[in-house]
Computed example of a mutant assay.
Amino acid sequence: MSTLDKVTIAQLLHALKQTWSFKSSSKWSMDNPSKGQCGVTSLVVNDILGGEIRKTPLFEGWHFYNMIHNTRYDFTESQFNESISYEDLPSNREEAFMDTNFNQYNYLKSSVLKELSKTE
């Protein structure tokens, strides 16, 4: 059984928090590490845990997150000061990729997988 077969939400969130950086989003800052990470994070979470990518319109534009076994997981909600009124609109990988690029995606995915491998 590989690490990905038994990864928990808590482990994945920890790995994301350890690896978000300017390399995964140009909006990243030390004060707000999840800023601008929603698209790239939703893609990596989808790769690891499956489920669906969902979106909600916000003032800044679309906000992406994940729906796994009918439960919403928004790993980047901490970037916002106000609570989100989720609409849970269906989305997909193509839309989420419009919020990132391959370099950011490849960096975050490989960094998260490396971080998760430390938990074996």
Rank of each mutant, 00 (worst) to 15 (best):
Leu12Gln: 00
Met1Asn: 04
Asn101Arg: 04
Tyr86Leu: 09
Leu113Pro: 01
Asn106Tyr: 10
Ser85Trp: 04
Gln18Arg: 15
Gln37Val: 12
Ile68Gln: 09
Arg54Ile: 03
Tyr107Arg: 08
Asn81Met: 08
Gly51Ser: 03
Thr76Asp: 01
Ile9Phe: 04
Met67Thr: 08
Lys23Asp: 13
Leu58Asp: 11
Leu113Gly: 05
Tyr65His: 04
Arg93Phe: 12
Leu113Phe: 15
Gly36Cys: 15
Arg93Ser: 07
Tyr107Glu: 01
Ser110Gln: 14
Asn32Cys: 05
Gly50Asp: 06
Pro90Met: 08
Asp5Val: 04
Ile9Gln: 02
Phe102Val: 10
Gly51Phe: 00
Tyr107Ala: 08
Asn92Pro: 03
Asp5Ala: 02
Lys27Asn: 08
Leu116Cys: 04
Leu13Tyr: 12
Asn70Ala: 08
Ser34Met: 12
Leu49Tyr: 02
Asn32Tyr: 01
His14Val: 01
Ser24Lys: 14
Ile68Tyr: 12
Leu49Lys: 14
Ala15His: 02
Glu87Phe: 05
Ser29Gln: 06
Leu43Val: 11
Asp88Gly: 15
Tyr65Met: 04
Lys55Cys: 09
Thr8Pro: 05
Val40Trp: 02
Val45Cys: 09
Phe22Gln: 13
Lys17His: 15
Tyr86Ser: 02
Leu12Glu: 00
Arg93Trp: 06
Ile68His: 05
Pro90Asn: 14
Gly39Val: 10
Phe75Tyr: 06
His63Lys: 10
Tyr86Glu: 09
Tyr107Phe: 14
Ser91Asn: 07
Ala10Tyr: 07
Gln11Cys: 13
Met1Leu: 04
Leu113Glu: 04
Lys23Leu: 14
Thr8Ile: 11
Leu13Cys: 15
Gln37Ser: 11
Met67Gly: 05
Ile68Met: 09
Tyr73Glu: 05
Asp99Ile: 12
Leu89Cys: 10
Glu120Trp: 13
Lys35Phe: 04
Ser111Asp: 14
Asp88Phe: 13
Gly61Val: 11
Phe75Asn: 05
Arg72Lys: 01
Ser21Val: 09
Met1Thr: 02
Asn70Gly: 03
Val112Ser: 02
Val44Asn: 00
Asp74Tyr: 02
Leu116Trp: 01
Val7Cys: 07
Lys27Pro: 03
Val44Phe: 10
Asp74Ser: 10
Asn46Lys: 14
Thr56His: 10
His14Thr: 04
Pro33Ser: 07
Lys109Ser: 14
Phe97Arg: 09
Ser110Trp: 07
Lys17Ile: 00
Trp20Gly: 00
Leu4Gln: 12
Val40Met: 13
Gly61Trp: 12
Phe97Met: 13
Phe64Ala: 13
Ser117Leu: 09
Lys109Leu: 12
Asn101Gly: 13
